[in-house]
Design a binder for these strands. Structure first.
Lengths: 355, 355
DNA sequence: CGTTGGCACTCAAAAGGAACGAGTGCTAAA
DNA sequence: TTTAGCACTCGTTCCTTTTGAGTGCCAACG
């Protein structure tokens, strides 16, 4: 059944009032908030109807109404007004993005903090690449027992490792290995590094000391771990919310969030624009069932796709949060896609990374 | 006034009982816990005495006694029994330390988690080097617009950065710069990199494009940021404790901890062995005034010195916590001092780092 | 003199209960 | 369809009472 215009206004009023106050809202309050001319009694009838339809519920008989997940969903899909960011907010975000030349994970951590600060909810960032490959391979000879491995990966991140060995080798050997790796280990993803490939490289290099497998091991480890990472910040903000006045409840959610591996399974896709909203029971994870998650995805170029989002109570100012995340994600996309950030770089264009 | 033997036994009983139960402890309980033969009335007299001397206090008339900071201090200094680690505990720590070839900050993060897991209190790690220098300098030419800077630092960590420039340069220029930096920027600490040094290098390289200052900027940034870092984990564990059932109190402390810069000011030194205990008001920071902090310091070779510690309520099992931290710090020292970890490495001795 | 049993006292926490009031549903009239 | 009126519900607040763990003190005892 389609809701009447008035019912929608009432639903909106209930949701918005509840977002502000965290208290069940009654007929009188709705009347004022929605600016309706009719009497509280009329509103009560409508509220009863919305209750019957599953958009609202009462914590107990004779309390005001609070929105159900279904109510929030309708609100988010149809009733929510687009929230404009204030000048201060866009400025804050821009200035953080400007002149950035940090490595990717630092940048994301910083953006997470930004999101926490703007929304006052815990923020999470996830970055993931479909497949990572090595673009360029170098071995730096230090002395007869040590060398540095330097990998340039697709996505233009650089990884390295210092290796000390208990036996010695010549600079020549290293150069030969470096060339071999450069030709056979570049451009392929980690699944294509097989035992045969390693063996044949070892034979070709005439390596009898196991150098090849040390290096190959690092390459595999790097490709595997470079594929994604999650990061959470601002968990303590939950404690300010009335819905988490029970320390146990807060503890469970914070614990869940602090295990980054949980977050990897957050769904992609988007509800509108590049933002996705998951309301209470719509979440797959039990621990999130009475919280909401708002996610925005950004584009990091070269197969890389990331998510930045916040977690909060179902009573959340969805429009404001969505607008802020969307703006941040947009900024990130522009910055990472290789172009200049909003304000433009100065004379130099540096896209650095030292991980 | 010196306490009698019996008073000490009673004080110990009160402290240990309170550590377990978090409830004020009464005369009857003390009698059992301390295994004393006398009657509760006698104990009450002694308790009153300890109260007068400032070792114990009552939350209100006619409740049991709880230890004051002074009481805990006496306990820690004189009464505490050395706690032996169980086989499982040492095993857990050893296996985490064994075969480690990660970069330093990962290793510390991991040890923080270990400490949290073993003590169930939030853990913090701080690493600091008196001075960091560059040991070796390399530029890897990629194409006419890009190159990678690779720095090997004292302490054997490697840092790198990928640089794209909007103008082109030759492989030759890079080689010349690489040699120049290798001779004039190695072995000096960041304060010695002056504008004159940069200018003279620029002239010597015949660099008119500003390459030198980009590279020098990275060196300075790296040396500055490599000097120290703090890390906190497991904050959520506080929420399980009865003393933090007030979300506000928990929030304040967690917030304090999450700002890493606060931690830098934690005092060094040690009470006994390599462990330092700060009880309640002994802490400088207001936010820590009714919590306790236990710190163990480890040696990371090459001017590097670090701290690993936990934060918890004043009612904390100091002996167990101190033993665990001390063991972890010992393991870290041995691992980082360049030797093999407790279990020994396998065939290879790899001390890696890819930061 | 240190120790002990006894006893009156204290006080936080738990349990009970009355009054309140915000908000409802329902009915009957406009 | 809307509205005023009214009885009813039920969580919240505030007050009182009860309970019980624990104390301090005293008088008696070895």
């Amino acid at each position: 059944m389609e809701l009447s215009q008035r019912q929608k206004r009432i639903l909106r009023a209930v949701v918005e009032e509840y977002i502000d106050s965290a208290e069940p809202v009654g007929s009188r309050t709705v009347r004022e908030r929605a600016g309706l001319e009719c009497s509280p009694a009329t509103i009560r009838n409508e509220l009863a109807e919305l209750d019957r339809e599953g958009y609202l519920e009462q914590p107990h008989t004779s309390a005001g109404r609070i929105p159900t997940a279904r109510g929030y969903r309708l609100y988010v899909n149809e009733l929510m007004r687009e929230r404009e960011l204030s000048h201060e907010e866009t400025e804050a975000i821009n200035s953080k993005l400007q002149g950035r030349m940090e490595q990717l994970d630092r940048l994301l951590e910083d953006m997470g903090h930004m999101a926490t600060e703007l929304t006052s909810y815990p923020a999470l960032t996830i970055s993931a690449a479909a497949a990572v490959t090595v673009k360029r391979f170098d071995l730096i000879y230090l002395d007869q027992n040590s060398f540095i491995i330097v990998l340039l990966l697709s996505g233009d991140t650089v990884k390295n490792k210092l290796v000390h060995l208990p036996f010695s080798f010549s600079q020549n050997t290293l150069q030969r290995l470096s060339a071999l790796f450069n030709s056979s280990f570049t451009g392929i993803d980690e699944k294509m590094i097989t035992a045969e490939l390693i063996n044949s490289t070892e034979r070709a290099a005439g390596d009898t000391m196991g150098l090849t497998s040390v290096i190959a091991g690092f390459v595999i480890e790097t490709l595997t771990s470079a594929r994604g990472g999650a990061n959470v910040s601002g968990e303590a903000n939950l404690l300010k919310l009335p819905e988490f006045k029970d320390p146990d409840k807060a503890h469970r959610l914070i614990n869940y969030l602090s295990d980054a591996s949980n977050l990897a399974s957050l769904p992609g896709g988007a509800d509108f624009g590049d933002v996705k909203v998951l309301i209470g029971p719509e979440n797959a994870a039990l621990e999130l069932r009475d919280s909401s998650v708002v996610l925005a995805s950004y584009n990091a170029g070269d197969n890389m796709r990331g998510i930045i989002g916040v977690v909060g109570p179902t009573r959340m100012d969805y429009s404001a949060v969505a607008a802020k995340l969307s703006y941040i994600a947009g900024g990130l996309s522009r910055l990472l896609a290789g172009g200049a950030p909003p304000g433009g770089f100065g004379k130099l264009m540096i896209k650095g990374d030292d991980k």
